[in-house]
Design a protein around this nucleic acid. Structure first.
Lengths: 313, 313
DNA sequence: GGCTGCCATGCCGAACTCGCATCCGTCAGT
DNA sequence: ACTGACGGATGCGAGTTCGGCATGGCAGCC
């Protein structure tokens, strides 16, 4: 193209030498320069001397601009390459709170170690809000769960794990120290939950077990919930992802679930929207993190999660 | 070209609208973007949505670079246009000392008023040195004279004027107050000259008149010469261009020359080297200045100078 | 369900690009 | 002064690209 021809000729002071350097023929260079001069319409860019050529004033004026163009082009190439190799660009993701307990920190640590050039920004939120921000283009990726009744079908879902559930009971509880329990045995218990109604929360599983739990205290924050449980004010459900960060005076009992697991966790992207390589890499990091965290906490055998990516149709 | 297509699509968010804006067809835009994406090899630059398109991360990265390229291109166009219209660029010229007395200042004033955007640099020197610097590419234009025996043939010459000569005599000189004189009447006078030998100087004309002038004092600087003349130490030749700046106690007598004028003054450029429009404009300003200065000083009728440009072959 | 808006693509003619060979002007060495 | 070498310009021909036209496919909307 004319840009390389011009700059090379300006550097070399000769069409022939420039052609050799570029791996072209002399005639190609001659034509490129000639057509460039024609296109600019401002007279010749080089004076043709018996010994090679020499920049005219117009050519001298053009040089810095041509260099600027070449630099920008080269810079674009570099940055796009960095993007391909996940050494640049940005990654904006969101996750629900309990995923931030262990899953996301592990994945993030591994990702940042492997791809220090990527600018990562993180958000916390509930699944429906995260999906909205995904759709609006404010997020590239969202770690979401099936809890909350959000319409996941519209998104590209990368399955991360199926979470088992625990019941958190105070240290002195009658069931403490025992093994896995059926949820039905807690039908009469006081429950601590983030919402007065079980629908759309983890407590939904209770409905499937045939009872409607009595929500004695509405507490949203996880630490606060533990406090209420430890004080003997009630019991609560704990997803496996949060099992790691439980205080010692609260006992976790695995819930025996017949059939389907309590909830699935996905990395979601907008369907049909191409995702940057960093997104793929982060999904990979999330997958690895799944294997690393003890989501099979004390008392239960590890819960295997299929490594395959799945798109809900 | 791909640049305009990409930027316009990025701005408009639609191939079709961008095509309308550019005066192209939608298919042309589609192909341009498609081939650009292929060339960059880093995946699509736009996500194709049902409602137009949307930049991907790669596209978003590319935008500033593309804008940089477009800006540089546009800037180059602007500056080249300025160069064409003599509203930019630079002009480096040199002139011999007596041309700087009136001719060059007048021309320079007119030129700078008309073309304030041009950066002008000036040098002073003797004709041979100026021509060397012209050849070396340090000057774009040189105001030179035939005095000095320089090889003018190799240069592109724009004739400015043919200079008449004056003899400067002290106020009380016997010839003072008389009219034009023949040089032969001063064959026995003491001469003040810049060189002990008349060859290559204005005094060369004396040789053509059949006598070898006796150089009593070698004085180079014009003001100093006048001092020597005023003090009665001798007489000296004064070119018409310097006639304006003579002190009142020195009298100028027009020299009667039979045949050829004493010397010609040219604006010289390097032959075959394309000259910037500013050079042409400055030559024009010099021509106008020739008409404006009283190179026909007291005592002589104006000496017409042909306005045609001439190349010595 | 038909309609509309938007992008992709097969096809074709026009234009461009490049390499090859050759020509022209200048310079250097004999 | 003649000749060979060097450097750029140019006619020619083949391969490629480019742009327009028409069409197809897909999603959303009345």
């Amino acid at each position: 193209m004319w840009l390389r021809a011009f700059l090379e000729v300006a550097r070399q002071g000769s069409f022939t030498v420039a052609a050799r350097t570029l791996g072209w023929t002399q005639s190609a260079v001659s034509r490129q320069i000639s057509s460039l001069e024609g296109a600019l319409g401002g007279g010749p860019l080089f004076d043709r001397l018996p010994r090679g050529v020499r920049l005219t004033e117009a050519g001298r004026v053009l040089v810095p601009y041509a260099e600027g163009v070449a630099e920008a082009l080269q810079g674009a190439g570099r940055e796009l390459a960095a993007l391909r190799e996940v050494a640049g660009g940005r990654l904006r993701f969101g996750a629900f709170a309990t995923a931030d307990a262990a899953l996301v920190p592990h994945a993030l640590a591994a990702f940042r170690a492997r791809h220090p050039g990527v600018e990562v920004t993180r958000e916390e939120g509930f699944t429906p809000g995260l999906l909205d921000r995904l759709t609006a283009g404010h997020l590239d990726l969202a770690v979401v769960s099936t809890t909350g009744g959000a319409r996941l079908e519209a998104y590209e879902l990368h399955h991360l794990l199926d979470e088992s559930l625990y019941v958190a009971v105070p240290g002195g509880h009658v069931l403490a120290g025992g093994g896995p329990v059926r949820l039905g045995r807690l039908a009469d218990a006081d429950w601590i939950s983030g919402s007065p109604r079980p629908e759309g929360t983890l407590l939904e599983v209770a409905l499937r077990q045939g009872f409607r739990p009595r929500v004695a205290h509405v507490v949203g924050e996880w630490t606060a919930k533990q406090g209420y449980v430890a004080a003997g004010l009630g019991v609560t459900l704990v997803p496996a992802l949060a099992a790691e960060s439980v205080r010692p005076d609260v006992v976790l009992l695995p819930v025996l679930d017949e059939g389907a697991p309590a909830r699935a966790v996905y990395a979601a992207t907008v369907r049909g929207r191409s995702s940057a390589p960093a997104v793929e890499a982060f999904v990979g990091a999330l997958r690895e993190a799944v294997g690393r965290i003890p989501h099979a906490s004390p008392h239960t055998p590890p819960h295997p999660s299929p490594p395959t990516s799945r798109t809900m149709a």
